[in-house]
């Protein structure tokens, strides 16, 4: 028979990418993001052991992660301008040629800067819906706001990203 721990890991580990992406957008460094992911899973595990088990783990983990980020990590967050950009950049894909990697690097640099410059609530809405695949109903639950507010933040965030980066992307596609 599977232990509670095995059951918990089986139910939640599939959401690691979601929690990681959310953590990356709530913190200023990769190290802080990884710490936040660990904290989130530990907090969730304690709740799981208290038999507080959700119907769907993704919105549940997102809520825990957001609450932790707001209460603990915000206090030591640095201003975006102080964050070395290389911390925000993903390692290039090994298969890409040097030129593609250079283009991708520039785009990611701009992308992370743009994402980080969005107001936090817009950044969170975009991360939950566009990066993590939550519905706007689930995102509203996780953020503790009405769905109409989430739709508005989501759209304003998308619009800001489109305006900031649209020209560059179109150039790359051409």
């Amino acid at each position: 028979m599977a232990s509670d721990q095995d059951e918990f890991l089986r139910a939640t580990m599939g959401a690691t990418d979601l929690v990681f992406n959310l953590s990356r957008r709530m913190t200023d460094s990769r190290q802080d993001a990884e710490d936040l992911v660990q904290e989130t899973f530990l907090r969730a595990f304690r709740a799981w052991m208290d038999l507080r088990r959700p119907k769907r783990v993704e919105p549940w983990l997102a809520t825990i992660c957001l609450n932790l980020a707001r209460s603990r990590f915000r206090t030591r967050a640095r201003r975006p301008s102080e964050v070395p950009l290389e911390e925000w950049m993903v390692e290039p894909r090994p298969t890409a040629d040097p030129e593609s990697r250079a283009i991708e690097g520039i785009r990611r640099e701009e992308l992370y800067r743009a994402m980080h410059e969005l107001p936090e609530e817009q950044r969170v809405a975009i991360t939950l819906v566009d990066l993590s695949g939550l519905s706007t109903f689930e995102a509203a639950d996780a953020m503790g706001t009405p769905r109409g507010t989430v739709l508005s933040r989501l759209h304003r965030g998308r619009r800001a990203l489109a305006r900031l980066l649209g020209d560059r992307i179109e150039e790359d596609i051409r």
């Binding site: 990418d17 785009r107 992308l111 990203l161 489109a162």
Partner: peptide, 13 residues
């Protein structure tokens, strides 16, 4: 366009 841009930022843990 904004959604497409945002999706580019998705990372694997």
């Amino acid at each position: 366009l904004g959604r497409r841009v945002a999706e580019e930022a998705r990372e694997q843990a």
